[in-house]
Nucleic acid binder design. Structure first.
Lengths: 187, 187, 187, 187
DNA sequence: TATGAATGAGAGTTCATTCAT
DNA sequence: AATGAATGAACTCTCATTCAT
């Protein structure tokens, strides 16, 4: 049995990926979701709400994925490596989710809001790191700067892979992970 | 004396920054540029052409800026540092241009095209590095991966600065520049 | 109960008659049809399609009218008279349809297409005449020339009547029908 | 030395023929006439006035052509034949003028006005016939009906010829002229 | 006199949203 | 609950006309 709300969410992900936010109409979503146009408005107050709801769901799903990969019995560097690895693979395996998250910020324009979105992604990780008693000394950079120095290249790498411009190997992923790690440590 | 074409270009930069590509209408551009709606079409065949023309102009302006900062009497690492420094400052000083370049690639959907756009930005730099006889050994990564590992963090840093989330110091810029540099070198 | 599609078609016929094809806007059609502007596009892909659809419908309606008046038990000359009679009366009774058909061919510019349109009107009649075994010998003119010699005066007569310049009597119609008939026969 | 007014008139004839009244813009006329857009408005108050002026000029030119072909020393039937012949050849030789006259009535919508236009064409001919003392007895039809019965087929024939659908021979022209003549005479 | 840059009303069309069924 | 016909505001773009040069 199919759940119409889920059908709509999935259709939105699919259609926005193929045609962009600008090129997506409720008509198309309804058609792909196999529901009536009005049904969308039974579950979501507006198109905008539908978009932001999907963003929230993807963010949460992604966060849960990361958190679930953290292993408390391993040291933090290994965890970093592992998480980077998992993250990259998650994005590669779910390109539509990746693109949606990437593009969404251009739709929800308000800058403060954009920050909140980035924060949603990084905050829990940062928290975990702060709370752990590890032996590493991070640079005296603002936490978000550290985020920028790790998340930035990952996004770029995933993008290049999805465009078919580079051949992603596990080796490359670990190479990048280590580079990033080093870049945020005090020498 | 005001040049209408310039007025339109400036208005487009301003309005798209404030309201996003989706939220920008020719009406708004015309009003902000203080020209008639029809005048836009005297200078640009369509809204899309206006957008892409602005993108090209910003890209060229930016490239010229970078190239002008390259000093052949200095070694490549110092040039890298200087260019990163100049680039970050340029973006911080011209946030609207930065945002426009960032967002435009997300609006023009075609993936191959997006690649071409990224390439426009990196190609000349890459060329310069290849042609120079420097003593550094870069990692055996695809050139675009190296680009990702340097350009990615910069964009992130600029974003965070523009959001007011981090306080950008020259020290921080050089810190990042050096980290990036190290991350692409063979250890 | 009103059918919106029909309302739109009727409004189009009415408005184009009053203001011509050039002077008719979708706004006016929508207003006269008492529907939203968007409703037009639910039923017709474009204004042009709306116009051509109306043309086709009028052509078919007209053809059906003629064919229904053909009586196989009567000789061909009597049928000719009757059909001319019916045709003229049909046009006089439906001046808007007549004007629409007249004007449409001048609006749709393509010459070959115009021919097809004229052909649509004459072809079935010509066919009927060819297939019947009648005793008349028509002049060795191209069939379309014969058409021109019969249809041309009828159109002119209807036009003059609609303009109120001549008083159309049944007598006059038959007079013209007979003249036409004679003009295409071998003496 | 070229006269700009004439250039504009000629350009209008040419462009409206190729693209129809709806598809013709002042821009195109100006370009073809090799004058500035504003110049058109120096000579004609508006586009509409330009169109109607051209119509009037063509009408007058055509009328003069006909009148000049009337030979008072010949009997009226021969004159009729000759005029039909000249008329058809004039149209064939000047298809742009023919088409302009044909199409113009769809642009100037007002029905009374249309009448005036038809009248312009036939009035002088009618006058000439009335004033002459010839031996023929025309049917007791309204003069315009007689016109319809002669002018109608001619227009149709010219149209078919210009479309390349029939091969116009002098023989055919005379055949039609005679048919028309007979059709308006009392038997 | 001649121009064409500039204009803005108005064109055709789309689409998020509503609501009667 | 589910629908999709209906809507009209808002969009991009055109073009007859004006007017400073």
């Amino acid at each position: 049995m199919s759940d119409k709300r889920t059908d709509i969410i999935n259709a939105t992900l699919k259609v926005t990926n193929e045609f962009g936010f600008a090129g997506t109409s409720t008509d198309m979503i309804a058609k792909v979701a196999n529901v009536g146009k009005g049904t969308i408005y039974k579950y979501f107050k507006s198109k905008e709400v539908l978009y932001s709801t999907l963003f929230d769901e993807l963010t949460n799903k992604f966060m849960a994925f990361i958190v679930n990969h953290f292993q408390f019995n391993l040291d933090i560097q290994t965890n970093f490596r592992n998480i980077v690895y998992a993250l990259v693979h998650y994005y590669i395996a779910n390109p539509q989710e990746f693109r949606y998250l990437e593009r969404y910020s251009d739709v929800s324009l308000n800058i403060d809001q954009r920050m909140d979105e980035s924060t949603k992604l990084i905050e829990p990780i940062k928290k975990m790191m702060d709370e752990l008693d590890h032996g590493f000394k991070f640079k005296q950079l603002p936490p978000l700067a550290i985020f920028a120095m790790t998340y930035g290249p990952l996004v770029a790498i995933v993008n290049l892979t999805l465009m078919g411009k580079i051949d992603l190997t596990d080796e490359l992923i670990y190479e990048i992970a280590d580079s990033c790690w080093k870049s945020i440590l005090v020498k």
